[in-house]
């Protein structure tokens, strides 16, 4: 990816990601009045890792232990037939479930909104939350559905042909959000 058309640019570095997550954690606490009745559900793979980190921060700031889990949306995607069958991610719900709690869905990048649509369907099959909110590290625009995030780490204006990739220490061994220039279609 060294040629100019595929240039890679780091948009967020490790410390920026940390600061963004810290701010989101504070916002969640503020908006949910102490985060007493929430469940953080990350969308695998990187959303699940981010959910764990947000849970740690909320525990640190507010002293409440927030249930954290993951919600795989593969079986609920609307584009399954466009690609070969994909491996499944892990769904791990907290022991007390999601009923009557405020669920905060956590994903790394918000783009078309189709992943979130699938997540709402998946959530419907595992319980009935009191409310659902959405936290994302990067909002890159180009929504194709009427969906918006409640908590955003960074709004990142992008061209549709570009790719946004999030790297996290736990999975990738480094911390960064990079923008990869794609070819114009």
């Amino acid at each position: 990816m060294s040629d100019a058309r595929n240039a890679v640019r780091a948009v967020l570095e490790g410390p920026d990601i940390n600061r963004a997550l810290t701010r989101i954690a504070h916002e969640i606490i503020e908006r949910t009045k102490g985060a007493g009745n929430i469940v953080l559900l990350g969308i695998p793979t990187r959303g699940a890792t981010l959910a764990v980190r947000l849970g740690e921060r909320i525990a640190q700031f507010e002293g409440v232990k927030v249930p954290v889990g993951s919600l795989d949306i593969t079986m609920y995607r609307d584009d399954l037939r466009l690609r070969p069958a994909r491996p499944l991610g892990r769904t791990e719900l907290p022991a007390d479930g999601v009923d009557d709690r405020t669920v905060v869905l956590v994903d790394d990048v918000l783009f078309s909104g189709r992943t979130v649509r699938a997540a709402l369907d998946a959530l419907n099959d595992v319980g009935r939350p009191k409310a659902v909110q959405l936290a994302t590290l990067v909002d890159r625009g180009h929504r194709e559905l009427p969906i918006r995030a409640d908590y955003v780490g960074k709004n990142l204006p992008t061209a549709k042909s570009e790719q946004v990739k999030v790297f996290l220490e736990e999975i990738d061994g480094r911390e960064a959000v990079v923008l990869i220039k794609g070819e114009e279609k």
Partner: peptide, 15 residues
């Protein structure tokens, strides 16, 4: 992963 679906109350997936 699918084995976990068998433990839920709604065992159906729309896939």
């Amino acid at each position: 992963e699918l084995a976990r679906v068998s433990d839920r109350s709604i065992k159906k997936l729309p896939t």
